[in-house]
């Protein structure tokens, strides 16, 4: 099942502990939760904005609630999960900083994955094309993108530093493959962080 997972989800799936309690915020159709349930026997819960995705996830037998990361996380009690996961959703939230704060309140640890806006291809497109980059990972145009808070790996590290959170682990992706941390802000298309408060 993990073979079919998106690369960032596969990384997360590999590093979640057996039998953990997991909340996937922005869980889509439940692909990751379903894999985690199958591979790791986790107690899987999800939050998802889109009704069709929720229906698909519930159809898979997952406990998924239709709701909004910006407004609905406050109802979960402190440390009610071992991991809170936010994959490819951070850049779509109204207040990414508060969402991560909530993840670290609800979960003992948080996985956060996002596309890196400072990847060299995007930089070149902006530098020479003078237009907002449209890439494989960021395929939408500026006016119809759900990504309202573009960020770079260095931006995220700065936020983590400012808030005094701890990075326990980090992974970087180029295409579908993992890449080294050196120069990640320029070379990586995608980042996955494991944080704790």
């Amino acid at each position: 099942m993990s073979d079919a997972l998106r690369p960032d989800l596969a990384i997360i799936a590999r590093h979640v502990a057996q039998g953990a309690r997991v909340l996937d915020v922005g869980c889509g159709d439940g692909a990751l939760l379903s894999a985690l349930r199958g591979m790791k026997g986790v107690d899987a819960r999800g939050l998802e904005l889109d009704a069709d995705n929720v229906a698909a996830a519930v159809e898979r037998g997952l406990s998924v609630v239709q709701g909004d990361a910006d407004t609905d996380l406050g109802y979960y009690p402190d440390t009610s999960f071992d991991y809170a996961i936010l994959s490819q959703t951070l850049q779509t939230t109204r207040r990414p900083d508060r969402v991560v704060e909530e993840l670290l309140r609800i979960g003992a640890r948080a996985f956060v994955s996002f596309p890196n806006f400072a990847h060299w291809r995007g930089r070149l497109a902006l530098l020479f094309g003078g237009r907002m980059p449209v890439t494989r990972l960021l395929p939408e145009r500026w006016y119809d993108t759900p990504n309202i808070h573009h960020l770079t790996i260095d931006d995220f590290r700065a936020l983590v530093r400012d808030r005094g959170w701890t990075i326990e682990a980090q992974w970087f992706l180029k295409g579908d493959h993992e890449t080294g941390g050196a120069n990640a802000n320029l070379m990586a298309e995608h980042a996955v962080f494991l944080l704790r408060a």
Partner: peptide, 15 residues
Amino acid sequence: VHALNAAGREVSFVE
């Protein structure tokens, strides 16, 4: 749903 989340219960919800 919020109350069930607060109580830590397993819940699914869709509009």
